[in-house]
Simulated assay, not measured.
Amino acid sequence: MFKARMTAGVSILAAAAASTLLLGCSASVEVKKSTAPKLSADKLSSTLSEKLAAATGQPKPDISCPEDLVGKVGTTTRCKLTADDGSTLGVTVKVTSVSGDQIHYDFKADDKASPAAN
């Protein structure tokens, strides 16, 4: 008889994804404007980590974003949440509006985590 088992990391990722999906998360950050405002990849990563921790009641997850988020409606980027066991979960960020120097965006975690690389 086969018995499926989830690691603690995958369980946390699944909980984070489920909570994020249920909450319909969004955020806004004020940034300095040159042409189109930009939110640095580091600031985006830390903001997402804080928002996901608050939404799930779990410690801040390790999130990395590959690029700055340009403050233009419809712009998207993909960030990666990495659990302690090495499994990963994608997080999509989409700019919903820009008010002066403030970038407003929604984010959504993927439904399914990717297992850790061997």
Rank of each mutant, 00 (worst) to 15 (best):
D68L: 00
A16H: 11
R78E: 14
T47I: 13
L44F: 03
C65K: 01
G71L: 06
K94Q: 10
H104N: 14
S28V: 10
V70R: 01
A53E: 13
P59G: 06
T76E: 14
K72N: 12
K112I: 05
P66T: 04
A113D: 09
V95H: 08
K72G: 05
P37N: 08
V93Q: 02
N118K: 15
T77C: 11
T35E: 15
A54M: 04
G57K: 08
S99H: 01
S19D: 15
A17Y: 06
S40F: 07
A18V: 07
A36G: 07
Y105W: 09
K38V: 14
Q102D: 11
A113F: 10
V29W: 03
P115D: 11
F2P: 11
N118A: 13
V73T: 12
S28P: 05
T92S: 15
S40G: 13
G86Y: 07
L22A: 15
V95M: 01
V95Q: 08
L52Y: 02
P66F: 03
A41E: 12
A8V: 02
P59M: 03
A53I: 08
C79W: 05
P115R: 05
C65T: 00
G100F: 00
S64Y: 00
D110G: 10
K112E: 11
V91E: 09
G9R: 07
T77P: 05
T56Y: 03
A15R: 14
T77I: 05
S114G: 09
S45F: 01
A15C: 08
T82C: 04
L21A: 15
A15G: 12
L52G: 02
P59R: 06
A36M: 08
L52V: 14
A14T: 08
K80V: 13
K32Y: 08
D68P: 00
E67S: 14
G90A: 15
D101K: 10
H104C: 01
S11I: 11
K43Y: 00
Q102Y: 09
T82G: 05
